[in-house]
């Protein structure tokens, strides 16, 4: 007897029953997100926003904003790592990130010089986390060198470690690692690429 599955003949019965219903799929997704949030099952919510430095991925746990990622970091790869490191209960759920999205919009419009957001720093630990906690001390519109930041963190010789901490900042833009530059005045590297760093520094200097 024939044990092959019947191919979905387009136009046939199986084809007709297999038709996609995008409206229903969208509706059901929204309903799932809402129920998941109510029942504390939404461990990581995410959305993307358009900005002058390209689309940014924003992700938040129940504790706060946990990740901001540039396109060059590969958003899908970032989501895969969040699933692995935090929880696979990851859903595209814009509402939890409304506040962050609004404040970032204001920042890029030049109307906000600091962020008032709950942050979840669990993706950074030890010395790197120490460094990140000192970054907001560099005021909007100003810069500091890697060496100055190392001194600020109480480890004046750890200049290279400061560079690594900035390079692995899980919350770029919001935690302002773009304000850290080389002591010779040149820009230095950036997780979002040199152009994004220039855009942010120019914006803040205006």
């Amino acid at each position: 007897m024939n044990t092959q599955p019947t191919p979905a003949e387009p136009g046939g019965i199986v084809g007709a029953l297999s038709r996609n219903d995008d409206d229903a799929n969208r509706r059901l997704h929204a309903r799932l997100v809402q129920a998941a949030e109510q029942q504390n099952l939404l461990d990581v919510a995410y959305r993307t926003i358009d900005t002058p430095v390209g689309p940014l991925l924003l992700a938040a746990t129940q504790l706060g904003l946990v990740r901001v990622a540039y396109v060059r970091e590969d958003h899908q790869a970032v989501l895969n790592r969040l699933a692995e490191k935090i929880s696979p209960r990851v859903l595209e759920a814009p509402a939890r990130l409304d506040d962050a999205a609004r404040q970032l919009d204001e920042y890029f419009a030049g109307g906000r010089s600091q962020f008032e957001l709950a942050l979840d720093l669990r993706l950074s630990s030890g010395f790197r986390r120490d460094i990140l906690s000192h970054l907001p001390d560099i005021r909007y519109g100003s810069t500091a060198s890697y060496g100055e930041l190392a001194r600020l963190a109480g480890s004046p010789k750890a200049v290279r470690a400061v560079g690594t901490a900035c390079g692995t900042n899980p919350l770029p833009v919001v935690v302002p690692c773009h304000r850290v530059v080389r002591s010779d005045g040149t820009q230095g590297g950036y997780v979002g690429g040199p152009e994004a760093k220039r855009t942010l520094l120019t914006l803040e200097a205006a």
Binding site: N20, D21, A24, N25, L28, H29, L32, V44, Y46, L79, N80, L82, A83, E84, P88, R89, V90, L91, E92
Partner: peptide, 17 residues
């Protein structure tokens, strides 16, 4: 490893519906 659940919804949601 387990994929983000969002991908499970995208890949299998329409079929389950």
């Amino acid at each position: 490893r387990l994929k983000p659940f969002e991908q499970i919804v995208t890949e299998h949601g329409p079929t389950v519906l």
